[in-house]
């Protein structure tokens, strides 16, 4: 084999690589020109039959040839690979500006969110959560809270009864949970009582026969009205913003004395909005629940979750909270 033959092989191989337009063609060209049955491979196999001198000369030529063809192949391979990758990437374009169509996790109800937020404020102050039944004994819902049998609030105009004779009611507040807690344990007591409560109110934009309360009770030695104010101020700041103030106004509740309505400063006509009722636990309530009012004092408060939710989120109609329109649910 002489130099011109080797040159012809080189030219043929390079031409084949250049002619290849995709990696399949190129692979076939590689097999044709570098494979085990290629002229180059066959020539190398025949080297053994040559004289030593010839073998050295032709061997060197063939090695040169192989190096040249391999380099040409590698170059072309790289070139074609890069083109093909670009083509593939171009063909794989996805429009990711569209909506992400996978399971959308559901949302907790606004009342659940606000209730949890309120409860969390008090948990941070060392309160626990206490729960109780919604169908409740009148003794827990009324009597032990200083609401005597002939009290107007116990009438069927205000209270929904399950059994009037047995005095079983739909609880009108979560205060019976406070009662159950005090009957079950001695102070110190610090609990919040979230849950649904019921009143005999027909459904309209501002009334609902069922609504949600978070009540709180703290009983220990040396609890004062300043502690009540401080606790509710912390609540108001947490729920409505750090710039809030609270105002206590004298009021009347059978189960607290002194009693206070609590207003939070707001961008309203008067500058204040009534948020909740509160007071120092009436000594008669403590005594009735087996707690010594001479030794212990405490405060209690009741927050309407609907009211907080409506104020904070601009919900104009309380029915929206219970009618579960998907558009409403998705907003929170």
């Amino acid at each position: 084999m002489d130099a011109s033959e080797v040159d012809a092989l080189r030219i043929a191989a390079l031409a084949a690589f250049s002619a290849a337009t995709d990696s399949g063609d190129l692979e076939q060209a590689r097999i044709d020109h570098l494979g085990r049955r290629s002229p180059l491979a066959l020539a190398q196999k025949q080297l053994g039959g040559l004289t030593d001198e010839e073998r050295r000369r032709v061997g060197a030529l063939l090695n040169e040839l192989k190096t040249a063809i391999t380099e040409a192949f590698d170059a072309r391979h790289l070139e074609l690979g890069s083109v093909e990758l670009s083509q593939r990437l171009a063909s794989e374009r996805l429009d990711l500006t569209g909506p992400a169509r996978r399971i959308r996790p559901g949302r907790p109800h606004l009342l659940t969110q606000v209730e949890a937020e309120i409860v969390d404020v008090f948990l941070g102050m060392g309160f626990s959560v206490a729960e109780g039944p919604e169908v409740e004994s009148g003794r827990f819902n009324f009597d032990l809270l200083n609401i005597p049998p002939d009290h107007p609030a116990r009438g069927t105009m205000d209270t929904i009864y399950v059994d009037e004779d047995a005095d079983i009611v739909l609880r009108t507040h979560t205060s019976p949970v406070q009662v159950r807690t005090m009957l079950a344990q001695q102070p110190p007591i610090a609990v919040v009582c979230p849950g649904r409560v019921y009143r005999a109110d027909a459904v309209d934009a501002t009334h609902s026969p069922v609504f949600t309360q978070v009540e709180g009770l703290l009983v220990a030695e040396g609890i004062t009205m300043a502690h009540l104010r401080g606790t509710l101020l912390a609540f108001a700041k947490a729920l409505f913003g750090d710039d809030r103030e609270v105002r206590l106004r004298p009021s009347f509740f059978p189960f607290t004395e002194p009693s206070a309505e609590v207003d939070v400063s707001f961008e309203s006509a008067s500058g204040w909005l009534e948020i909740l009722g509160s007071g120092m636990v009436d000594p008669a309530v403590l005594a009735g629940c087996g707690i010594d009012p001479e030794r212990y004092s405490g405060f209690a408060f009741g927050i309407g979750v609907e009211r907080v939710a409506m104020l904070r989120h601009g919900v104009a109609d309380i029915r929206d909270l219970y009618d579960a329109d998907a558009r409403f649910l998705a907003a929170f």
Binding site: M125, P188, A226, L248
Partner: peptide, 19 residues
């Protein structure tokens, strides 16, 4: 005047939290 009642956080009286 209720307005004169100061605001003060109660001493931590219990170990709180959810069960």
């Amino acid at each position: 005047g209720f307005a004169h009642i100061p605001a003060e956080l109660p001493p931590l009286v219990a170990r709180g939290g959810r069960s």
